[in-house]
Design a protein around this nucleic acid. Structure first.
Length: 442
DNA sequence: TCTGGGGTCCTAGGACCC
DNA sequence: TCTGGGGTCCTAGGACCC
């Protein structure tokens, strides 16, 4: 194209904020139950195999932290209040908080319910009305508004790129202590000329993308701090960690991160997985669980107007060994029946007898818009897995409408339904499970 | 101590095509 | 008898993040 010029803004001119809500899930729970304020509160960790999703600073003082197995958290802090977690509520508050961010800049990239990157390079002038506002001042405005409007606190990092901003928000956070939470700085600004001094003393594990496995490899090279990593030649890092990760981490260690803030990230996969309270040992049990997973995933696909071509089943055995099996269909699907059919064929040759602790079903290769109706592949109109596509679509739409009016639990696959015994014998399972088999899912 | 559920991204091998 | 190079798609596994 002639006559078009692209201007690339030099990275040193960018002002990036990372905003991170403080103990978000717990803080939302405290809004609704203020009597728990000042006490150790843990969200998640329900069920025999649960893990902690979030812990209040009072609970953290006992060593409780997120991703910790529930049993361990209960041992460390038996007097804590354990809450199951209400994700719809968190999502609702999250949308409002994100809207506050959005009033400062259109360039908001949510990373999860409780954190986002903001590129405010252009907002500095808009809000300053001539008198330029600094990144730190915008950070303080955001904290004030989130507190005033939602009653929640957050921590803000300000830097010239994403990953330094993220580390800066971490530095701004409150700290847990035996005497109660110690407030942090709230807003931490790292100017361009301070980046290396800020970065190099940090442990390498602080870098985004350095987990246990990478940490182990790096420590074999004698790398402890980010500064140590910066002194290793790029090719050596790439040889140890692979091309992509190596080059990326080498750049980060030198404070370089050119990734833009991208507001419109589209989902690449939609899935659902479940760890069972007790292991499953038979193919029939596995097949029945798949019905529920397929139904849940299909419902979410349709709610977002998506359909997926690739179906992946994940099986985790009792010894934690995990396998995945996937297949790509000729066209995208969004019905529980179609997902179930694919999932079934994928687990057909998986032996569940060692004990299955988790089953997952996920779809990827997503397309926007309605699923292709695979009428030809679906076979003749009859009950069972070959039920015609048109029937399937009608059923799905009816189910969606019922759920809209009466809630998600109002209707579901027969195989997973609770069937109370009735005096007149109706609705009572008579001989085994076969006649209620997953084939009758819809 | 015994390890959730939602995801993203990367690697590597093989099939297939031009 | 020895068998290219590049690209894309698919599958399986793994690391990592919140």
């Amino acid at each position: 194209v002639t006559g078009v010029r692209l201007f690339v803004m030099p990275s040193t001119d960018r002002t990036i904020l990372h905003v991170d809500m403080d103990a978000f899930f717990v803080s939302v729970e405290l809004l609704d139950a203020p009597e728990l304020r000042g006490h150790p509160v843990v969200v998640g960790g329900d069920g025999p195999r649960g893990v902690v999703a979030a812990a209040s600073y009072e609970a953290r003082a006992f060593g409780v932290h997120s991703a910790m197995p529930a049993v361990q958290a209960r041992r460390l802090c038996p007097h804590a209040t354990f809450l199951a977690g209400r994700y719809e509520r968190y999502a609702q508050v999250s949308r409002r908080v994100m809207a506050i961010f959005g009033s400062f800049t259109p360039l908001v990239e949510p990373l999860s319910l409780d954190e986002a990157f903001l590129d405010v390079s252009g907002a500095l002038r808009v809000h300053g009305r001539g008198a330029a506002l600094s990144g730190g001042e915008i950070g303080r405005h955001i904290r004030r508004r989130v507190l005033d409007e939602e009653g929640l606190t957050c921590s803000v990092g300000v830097a010239t790129n994403k990953f330094v901003a993220k580390l800066a928000s971490e530095a701004a956070k409150p700290r847990a202590s035996a005497g109660g939470p110690v407030p942090g700085e709230g807003v931490t600004v790292v100017d361009g000329d301070e980046v290396l001094a800020f970065l190099h003393p940090l442990p390498v594990g602080a870098l985004w993308g350095v987990g246990p496995a990478t940490l182990a490899r790096l420590s074999r090279l004698g790398v402890v701090t980010v500064g140590d990593l910066a002194r290793i030649p790029r090719d050596v890092v790439a040889h140890t960690l692979g091309q992509a990760a190596g080059h990326h981490l080498h750049a980060l260690a030198h404070g370089v991160d050119e990734r833009p803030v991208e507001p419109d990230q589209r989902a690449k996969s939609v899935g659902h997985e479940e760890t069972f309270a007790t292991d499953r040992y038979t193919a029939r049990e596995v097949q029945r669980e798949l019905v529920r997973l397929a139904d849940a995933v299909a419902g979410r696909l349709r709610r977002h107007g998506l359909a997926g071509r690739t179906v992946t089943v994940k099986v985790r055995f009792s010894d934690f060994r995990t396998i995945t099996r996937s297949l790509t269909l000729p066209g995208p699907v969004d019905s529980g029946g179609a997902l179930l059919e694919a999932a079934r064929s994928l687990v057909a040759d998986v032996d569940p007898s060692p004990g299955v602790r988790l089953l997952g079903l996920s779809t990827s290769n997503l397309r926007q818009g309605a699923a292709e109706q695979l009428t030809l592949l679906d076979g003749p109109r009859r009950a069972g897995p070959g039920v015609a596509a048109a029937d399937r679509q009608e059923t799905d739409q009816a189910v969606d409408r019922i759920r809209e009016r009466f809630g998600a639990g109002a209707i579901g696959p027969a195989t997973v339904a609770h069937r109370p015994r009735r005096a007149d014998g109706l609705g009572v399972k008579t001989r085994g499970d076969q006649q209620w088999g997953p084939d009758r899912a819809e």
